[in-house]
Write a protein that binds this DNA or RNA. Structure first.
Lengths: 207, 207
DNA sequence: TCAGTTATCTTGCAGCTGTAAGATAACGTG
DNA sequence: CACGTTATCTTACAGCTGCAAGATAACTGA
């Protein structure tokens, strides 16, 4: 029992997990996740198939672990939702789309129709959590009215924004990125602004 | 060769496909799609396993075909984005969430983390297409300015809205629907209104 | 360094997958 | 109805899956 995602002190464990993650990311650049078997990953990683099962239930679980760092980098690129001091939002969004395009094959293979619902769900949750955090931090800093927006409203807004970004990104990736990252940012930014409860377009949540 | 989704005149084909679809929907109410094998579906449908493969590549492809009618019903419930004569938007949205809750187990099993990326992608595309259609019809009816919003902008808005709705719905389903459908509609409607280029909050697309 | 722990490897198994070939029987058409 | 067509069924096979038991070897902590 060397349970799943918990970081381990044992050198062997780190070595095996790293080899598996590396092998999976390599393979995911070559073909869709649905065409990658546990045997494939284990062989490319130079690890026995049973060792794979000692760490992960299936390919999807490994994929989740393997892409978490990349996903977090991606989320870190997103603009802060709040004050937006110098209109840096669009530039930040452009960096987001550019990074997406930089690993387009990988993201398509993991998140596209032949990808993994498990990974897609993981990304959605993580993105929603990040948005929710920023909304909270945001609301704390701003002198809100007598009563701030209720919890449920924040949750819905976070899920809404996370889903929207994933929808736009997935659509763009599947069309092979016809628009430049900068243009995508210009097209997407006004939509996000319109939702921002603290931003210029204050049509945001009020119920 | 009785290729995939095309409707067939042959009684045997219709019978087999209907039996498979019915069996899959039954099983999908009982457990996650990832735990449903081709053998399971074929057996429950009273059909040989090879007959399954004569019609569909795998369980995901059958699931796509089997849930298309339900999905289209769901999409049909969504409010028209345009003039919104009598503020019927929220009510329409409430019907959408209510229908979702009515088959919560099924939708969770198909679209959740243990569901199918293929089905999820299909739903996303279909929803985005529906939104795009309404935007187009909408723009045609309204006396737009000298130049209407460009194609790309409409596509991004459609993908944005489709993703957002799926994000909110998925989040709500996974939390076991703590809010009533009506409340969900009340929380979601202002977000959609804020995006509507023709609606009250005109922070919509302009670039 | 030594001892105990434990990660990995090997072997083996039952079940599912995806495909193929040929036999049977139901179907639509004239 | 009789015909040709074709959907379905049966049988078979190689490969992958998920899991278990036992042997080996690498690691950690003293």
């Amino acid at each position: 029992m060397k349970d799943g995602g918990v970081p381990s002190g044992d050198r062997r464990v780190r070595r095996t997990r790293a080899a598996l993650a590396r092998a999976l990311l390599e393979l995911a650049e070559e073909r869709d996740l649905s065409r990658i078997s546990v045997s494939d990953v284990a062989e490319r990683a130079g690890v026995s198939r049973t060792a794979f099962y000692d760490h992960y239930r299936d390919v999807h679980e490994l994929a989740e672990a393997a892409c978490t760092a990349m996903i977090d980098d991606l989320i870190g690129l997103l603009p802060a939702s709040g004050p937006d001091p110098e209109g840096e939002g669009p530039g930040s969004l452009a960096a987001f789309f550019a990074s997406l395009a930089g690993h387009a094959g990988l993201y398509r293979g993991l998140l596209g129709p032949r990808g993994s619902a498990h990974v897609a769900d993981h990304v959605r949750r993580r993105l929603a959590a990040a948005v929710r955090d920023r909304l909270r931090r945001d609301a704390a800093g701003r002198p809100s009215g007598p009563t701030g927006p209720p919890e449920a409203s924040q949750d819905v807004l976070a899920a809404f924004v996370a889903g929207a970004l994933i929808g736009v990104a997935a659509d763009w990736l599947q069309r092979e990125c016809p628009q430049s990252p900068g243009r995508m940012a210009d097209l997407t930014w006004p939509l996000l602004s319109a939702l921002d409860p603290g931003g210029r377009g204050d049509a945001g949540v009020s119920a």
